[in-house]
Design a binder for these strands. Structure first.
Lengths: 196, 196
DNA sequence: TAACATACTGTAATTATATACAGTAAAAAA
DNA sequence: TTTTTTACTGTATATAATTACAGTATGTTA
């Protein structure tokens, strides 16, 4: 959803909200009324801009013929993160799933390894992640150290950051100045597709 | 969705399909065309019947002003099961959530207690359950013994059924002839709304 | 500086859509 | 048996809605 102007974002949000509240898209007149435009053509122009930018689709001649491109897709599931790419880069998106968690989720990340099993997070679980560059003590975070992405419990002691694995067989990871640590997001929920 | 005639089910399905394919409801003319009605009023009449039966809602004067009552609901989340009631009775439904699992789920059940923590299933997790009256060895099942509903791993030895808790502190539950055991469903996935 | 994008107002025409009314016919319920 | 429900066709109309065209103004990019 990049490159949208603030007005375009407003129009997009009106469409999105209308869809969730009413179950069908708004008309140009309804968009104009909501945003206090005096001309329906203001809405029409914004719709054209949003189509051009690829965030919505139009069905010409059809009343309320608007689709949210983003919305059809659901929330991106990141299977594995290729080195050098931002986590949510399209190259990393495995598929898209609907969000059952009663919270904002920016992406789901498939868990690799056993480092969090004592917190009930198993390999291949999908962790719902909200993007954030900082974390509070005790939160489970998606962290990036150099080029590697891991899921760990965040603990800060003064200015020393400790990334704790919830597995007795793993040792804590103490971050020092020389290491390049980025907090990518906070884990807010879990989806497990496979039981066995 | 009871009491619908076969024609009404067809019309309902056309609306539902149009929604999933196009992202917005069909017009009367579109319904009529899909079902080869020669008059748009045939669609209009069916819509009125469906509204009367409570499976859709109409927004008068609004183009494509149709809502699926059932669809808004998602999959029922069962918070706790009242004694004497079937699990999915409306009285037990806490709320409804969308299904992120790539499988058929009849309902979600909120887990009570610690009996499955060694399988990575924690208290308050939502277990996605597919209704089934029989289970295979090793599957995690929702079982009802007398009036109590529990989540356990199913194991059958000859004709002895064993319900195994995945927690060292719990002992297995051996079912004998005198007990009233019902398998209500098979767990197919997990959703965890809260991490800490 | 010229071209383009953004951000609108205002008018108007064509088409899309809901919906009422008048029928016909058969099946189901009271 | 009468009434109601179901299941349509066919016509008509008011209104809902898309969308093009003509402007104005400002900011951004080439």
């Amino acid at each position: 959803m990049l490159n949208l102007t603030s007005q375009q974002i407003k129009v997009f949000d009106v469409i999105k909200n209308h869809l969730t509240i009413n179950g069908y898209p708004p008309t140009r007149a309804e968009i104009a009324k909501t945003l206090n435009f005096k001309s329906v053509n203001a809405a029409e122009s914004h719709i054209k801009a949003l189509v051009k930018k690829g965030v919505i689709e139009k069905v010409p001649g059809s009343s309320r013929g608007i689709r949210l491109v983003e919305d059809l897709a659901g929330i991106p599931l990141i299977g594995s993160v290729a080195a050098g790419l931002p986590i949510t880069a399209v190259e990393n998106v495995e598929k898209n799933i609907p969000n059952p968690l009663n919270k904002h989720v920016d992406f789901f990340l498939r868990v690799k390894g056993q480092s969090m099993i004592d917190a009930g997070i198993l390999e291949d679980d999908l962790v719902g992640v909200k993007k954030s560059s900082n974390a509070e003590n005790g939160q489970i975070v998606v962290a990036r150290i150099e080029d590697e992405v891991t899921l760990k419990r965040f603990k800060k002691d003064g200015n020393k950051v400790n990334l704790i694995a919830e597995n007795k067989n793993f040792k804590d990871l103490l971050i020092d100045e020389s290491m390049d640590l980025t907090i990518e997001g906070i884990a807010v929920g879990i989806v497990r597709e496979n039981l066995n």
